[in-house]
Design a protein around this nucleic acid. Structure first.
Ligand SMILES: [Mn+2]
Ligand SMILES: [Mn+2]
Ligand SMILES: [Zn+2]
Ligand SMILES: [Zn+2]
Lengths: 149, 149
DNA sequence: TGTATTTTGAAATCCGTTTTCATTTTCTTG
DNA sequence: CAAGAAAATGAAAACGGATTTCAAAATACA
């Protein structure tokens, strides 16, 4: 099993892309700290240590990560694309708190199986899916209840 | 059971909004022909019969429909918001063909129940959810298979 | 009616994303 | 270790869908 860094280097070689210091810095930073960060937020983080790296490069590199499979691109309906590390191509779905923005990951084999059933009954060939549950986390639910007049 | 038109008129009255000819024309057109149309596409349709109605008015009116519950706002990941009539607040999810854009609606009580289970195990209070299955419809799947070299 | 209030349509603006372009860096080959 | 070809970079511009602005028009209510 290759690690994320090796996977990315292989990808670069295969596509005749060049291995630059910016790409390595962005990769390491991404693997270290990223969890559902928007390009903007990730860029702002990175800029603290590496102010010379431009937004365009960050954007382009995150896209490369998604293309080679070490990142997943997510959209939780707030108009901002988010990226997260995609370990071993393991799939998961999300609970999104509309109160505080907290994101909880989950995986449910039964739901996945039922999705396949749905697709089959419609002669549909599934390539991908997205399931997001929106609502309030325990903390936000409690604070909303207590603030009702 | 009130129909969509009555619901919208009630909504306008409740919010002290005015009943204009544009709003009625847009409402009737929307109820008649809309199925997962983007604002742009809906506007282009409408313009054929009503060229004097502006895009901004169409956009604002579709938002009103969503606000009062007679329309549902959808986003299938192509960067365009789509609207559809939301009959009787009945929920459904979607199969989206990435080949031809075809959209098939489905409803699966078991999946809905399992979602509630997931939420409960995470002490999450669900308000809404979205489930989309992306892939190829039967026709697109067949044509892709036949075009492989 | 008169008049306050809302709505309208065109155009401008917003805002996240993507592209452009001149310059710099990387990589290959002799 | 050059040099030349190819690709990457960063700043700024462009893009595209969504939203807002604003002056003129339409509506609702007394
Ligand atoms: Mn995740
Ligand atoms: Mn639908
Ligand atoms: Zn929360
Ligand atoms: Zn299709």
């Amino acid at each position: 099993m290759k690690n994320q860094e090796e996977l990315f280097l292989d990808f670069l070689a295969r596509k005749r892309l060049k291995n630059t210091s910016q790409r390595m810095i962005i990769l390491k930073s991404f693997l270290r700290q990223s969890l559902h960060l928007s390009t903007e937020d990730f860029y702002l983080q990175l800029r603290k240590k590496h102010p010379a790296i431009g937004y365009a490069t960050v954007h382009r590199t995150l896209k490369l990560f998604a293309e080679c499979g070490i990142a997943a691109e997510r959209n939780f309906g707030d108009g901002q694309t988010r990226f997260e590390v995609n370990y071993d191509n393991e799939h998961h779905d999300h609970l999104v708190c509309t109160g505080c923005g907290k994101i909880i990951e989950f995986e449910n084999r039964q739901i996945e199986q039922l999705q396949l059933d749905v697709a089959r009954t419609h002669n549909f060939f599934i390539k991908d899916h997205r399931l997001e549950l929106y609502g309030l986390c325990a903390a936000c639910h409690a604070s909303e209840a207590s603030s009702l007049s």
